[in-house]
């Protein structure tokens, strides 16, 4: 046990309790169902805009793509045009594989000593972080897209199709959604990795644990409402549709667990721009990935160069010619 994960764990418990007791005990449905979600959305959008525009106005003076393959060279040497792109097209494909397939994570390796008398250092391919990250991000995406059913009426066909595919196993009633299970397992895996892998644990801070606990609690409350404690889904949709049509209503008979879920989602949204979760936007702006490796093929001129006022030797000689001649110094131009 250490405070780096105990503090965020306690924090998430507290957030849950604040909303749950606030609704069940103090009747603050309006606060947790209407005011906080609107405020969180505003904070999310404004914060996101501010962060990205901050990055956009930062100087990127050097062309620093990471080269992960053979660069463009002599005509008979085969270039790796995705891992070491020299054109915009190559960069585009590289960014696609980075954003949708986490390509650089796929190449993750671990260094370890052989446990024998030779005790040699070796590097091996470590794929489980990539597997966990893919499972987590894609299941989370599916869960978010599925939630569009609460914000659209009628529900669009693509959301219906996604929901149907997600429940294709037809286990139980209401039927099990695969994405929910995968999300929960993947977050657990990423959390346990941080706690039990000594090297990762050493570099993990409270800011790494907090979103994991928060997402775990969000997924947990959502799954709880769907499969165990039950909730009046029509009431829930009345509330969410009220939010998106700016006619907020508080439905009868929807309990504290739902408001706790909404509150924690709101906290997550408001937290994103202030945290490492901004890698959501940051991945597009990574200079080591989104630049073409054409350092030598193209002349890169510093974009904020300005004409520098110089004082040439000829001008210097014009200024001091007579004095130089008097002192017997050689001059280029005599009179």
């Amino acid at each position: 046990m250490n405070q780096k994960y105990l503090v965020p764990l306690a924090g998430v418990f507290l957030l849950f309790l604040v909303a749950y007791t606030g609704v069940e005990g103090a009747g603050l449905q309006w606060l947790f169902g209407v005011v906080v979600p609107y405020a969180a959305l505003l904070a999310f959008l404004a914060g996101f805009f501010y962060r990205v525009m901050g990055w956009a106005s930062s100087a990127v003076p050097f062309r620093i793509p990471t080269t992960c393959g053979q660069a463009k060279s002599l005509p008979w040497i085969k270039q790796n045009w995705v891992d070491d792109p020299d054109t915009a097209g190559g960069v585009f494909v590289r960014m696609l594989t980075e954003i949708f397939l986490f390509r650089s994570l796929f190449r993750n390796t671990r260094a370890a000593f052989h446990r024998n008398e030779k005790n040699r250092l070796s590097y091996s391919w470590e794929i489980f972080l990539w597997v966990g990250a893919m499972a987590f991000h894609y299941s989370f995406l599916v869960v978010i897209l599925r939630h569009l059913r609460f914000f659209t009426s009628p529900v669009p066909g693509c959301v219906k199709f996604l929901t149907k595919m997600d429940g294709i196993l037809q286990i139980g009633l209401p039927e099990l959604r695969i994405s929910g299970v995968v999300l929960l397992l993947a977050v657990f895996f990423l959390l346990l990795r941080r706690i039990f892998d000594a090297k990762v644990s050493y570099i993990s801070q409270a800011a790494d644990y907090f979103p994991l606990f928060l997402i775990l609690a969000i997924a947990g409350t959502g799954i709880c409402m769907r499969y165990f404690t039950r909730v009046d889904i029509i009431g829930v949709k009345e509330l969410t549709m009220g939010l998106v049509t700016f006619h907020p209503v508080i439905p009868k008979g929807v309990g504290g667990l739902f408001y706790a879920h909404v509150f924690m989602v709101s906290i997550l949204f408001a937290y994103i721009p202030n945290s490492k979760l901004m890698h959501m936007g940051g991945i597009f702006l990574s200079p080591t990935r989104n630049m073409a490796n054409n350092n030598r093929a193209v002349r890169h001129i510093n974009p904020w160069n300005y004409p520098v006022k110089v004082h040439t030797y000829e001008e210097y000689e014009d200024d001091f010619r007579e004095k130089m001649i008097e002192a017997g110094l050689p001059v280029d131009k005599k009179e």
Partner: peptide, 23 residues
């Protein structure tokens, strides 16, 4: 890109413009 992202996040709002919440 940022404007596209913000519009996508706000999708539920503009899809429901003028709609009602009636269940």
């Amino acid at each position: 890109g940022l404007v596209i992202f913000i519009l996508a996040v706000l999708l539920p709002f503009w899809v429901n413009l003028g709609g009602t919440a009636a269940a």
